[in-house]
Design a protein around this nucleic acid. Structure first.
Length: 448
RNA sequence: GGCCACGUGGCGGAGUGGUUACGCAGCGGUCUGCAAAACCGUAUACCCCGGUUCAAUUCCGGGCGUGGCCUCCA
């Protein structure tokens, strides 16, 4: 079955052909570890986890290499560490641990490699030396800058013609830039900032610019050209554009990655998420109220390139849908997802269509296929059940009292005293306890 | 201001140049002492204005609305 992926560079869906089917390679921009990740950060993590799973299904688990970096050198990190009076390393390690736990709760597999920027300084400086040697970068006032005009087709990914950008540049241009569009590859470390020996004969210690780390780490772990590069749509410009410039110019390669994939943005209850609006939602906040698998399904109910509005109503619906799946899925699962689901996912990761196909499996004939599909998606029955147990609301009166009243009601029903039976049921309902009569007896649960 | 997306039934959300998406809610039914749950069935849609076409929600142009980028934010 052909896999089709929407390529931002080509602006169309293209049939996926890996460079080497025995070693499919994907790079996704990961978190800057200075604070809890928010729900918007969770979108690419979940989306590309699903793509990772799909690629493993199509090419074999041992034939897919997924790299997601950890940015542990950054202005925000420095500022936060100083603010809390802890070391940078302490902050980044703690934050990474929190991120890893959040992501695991969302049902995501660990990537094959999670490289840290600070452990790839040597690759970065090597890349910078290459760029200077090739005439694509220059040294000025202890900075190394990438000379954008040296790359004739700069701007292809974001479809920004060079001349228009220069005309539109309104910000103050740093004095060490030869061209307003030039961007920093390396800069001197200020006192108190982390620094490393600089490249290109610069005497003072320095630190990398933002974009160079991804070029360095993808090179180290995936090679000069690889298959898929992913991230949020907001990274198209300038981050990915600059990554392309660095990598292609350093290696003289026609492409950095053959497929560029970008997930759409997320809003919260119809509004842009921001700290000033007070609707800034961390993954951790959401996991307090909802099982990770519900959060995962809620994210996947919308196609990854569409904007998504994150709402409580949506989460409620997702919980109902996921529960309905597990209610009918058999405990014995097929080892692979259902063909109709796979077909939907192969069409540029069409998760809404895949979920629709899963609804079609909610019958006796589809129970094993549904179980296999849920497992493929990363949904875990036990995780959902465990969360429910841990978060079950406590009944307002003792369990023995509830059971005593139910016993009384059963006697009343045996005597066909419906008035008394309904009175007891109504009383419990008023306390938030819902009764269900079946042939096997009466069960109860606390309404959410 | 420049560039780029998106606008589908009460809600969420796919897709398509002419024929059912799917789900949630609602409604009707089966079951039940009556309910709940479960199961079966079911109405409602394609932002506005032009154009292309035998035919447009689907293609093209314009408008309006929402969002993103252009300021190291997924």
């Amino acid at each position: 079955m052909d896999l089709k992926l929407y390529d931002t560079l080509a602006r169309e869906k293209r049939t996926f052909v890996p460079i080497d089917p025995a070693a499919v390679r994907m790079y996704v921009c990961g978190p800057t570890v200075y604070d809890f990740a928010h729900i918007g950060n969770a979108r690419p993590v979940i989306v590309f986890d699903l793509l990772f799973r799909l690629l493993r299904q199509l090419y074999g688990a041992e034939h897919v290499r997924y790299v997601r970096n950890i940015t542990d050198v950054d202005d925000k990190i420095n500022a936060r560490a100083a603010e809390r009076g802890i070391s940078i390393r302490e902050l980044t390690e703690k934050t990474y641990g929190e991120f890893a736990a959040d992501v695991a709760a969302l049902g995501c597999l660990p990537p094959t490699v999670e490289p840290r920027a600070t452990e790839h300084i040597a690759e970065m400086t090597a890349l910078i030396e290459k760029l200077v040697a090739a005439g694509h970068a220059y040294v000025e006032q202890d900075h190394v800058l990438f000379g954008v005009p040296s790359m004739t087709d700069y701007g292809a990914l974001s479809k920004r013609p060079l001349d228009e950008m220069i005309a539109g540049a309104r910000v103050d241009v740093a004095p060490y830039k030869r061209d307003p569009m030039d961007f920093v590859l390396w800069k001197p470390a200020k006192p108190g900032e982390p620094g490393w020996p600089s490249p290109c004969g610069i005497a003072v210690p320095g630190r990398p610019g933002w974009h160079i780390e991804c070029s360095a780490m993808s090179w180290k772990h995936l090679g000069e050209t690889f298959d898929i590069h992913g991230g949020g749509i907001d990274l198209v410009f300038p981050h990915h554009e600059n990554e392309i410039a660095q990598s292609r110019c350093a290696f003289g390669a026609p492409a950095m990655a053959n497929y560029w994939m970008h997930n759409g943005f997320l809003q919260v209850e119809g509004e842009k998420m921001s700290k000033s609006l007070g609707n800034f939602v961390t993954i951790r906040d959401v996991l307090k109220d909802w099982p990770g698998d519900v959060v995962r399904l809620n994210m996947l109910r919308t196609h990854y390139r569409q904007p998504i509005d994150w709402t409580v109503k949506g989460l409620e619906e997702s919980e109902k849908v996921l529960s309905s799946f597990f209610d009918v899925a058999s405990s014995e699962a097929e080892p692979r997802p259902a063909p109709a689901v796979l077909e939907a996912l192969c069409d540029d990761l069409n998760t809404p269509a895949a979920i629709a196909a899963m609804h079609g499996l909610k019958n006796a004939a589809g129970r094993k296929a549904l179980a296999g599909t849920l497992a493929f998606f990363g949904f875990r029955r036990e995780a959902l059940a465990d969360w429910r147990t841990a978060h079950a609301p406590a009944p307002p009166i003792p369990v023995e009292e509830i059971e005593r009243r139910i016993a009384t009601r059963i006697d009343a029903r045996k005597a066909k005293d419906w008035a008394e039976s309904d009175r007891i049921r109504d009383e419990l309902a008023a306390l938030g306890i819902v009764l269900k009569d079946s042939k096997d007896g009466t069960t109860w649960e606390v309404a959410r």
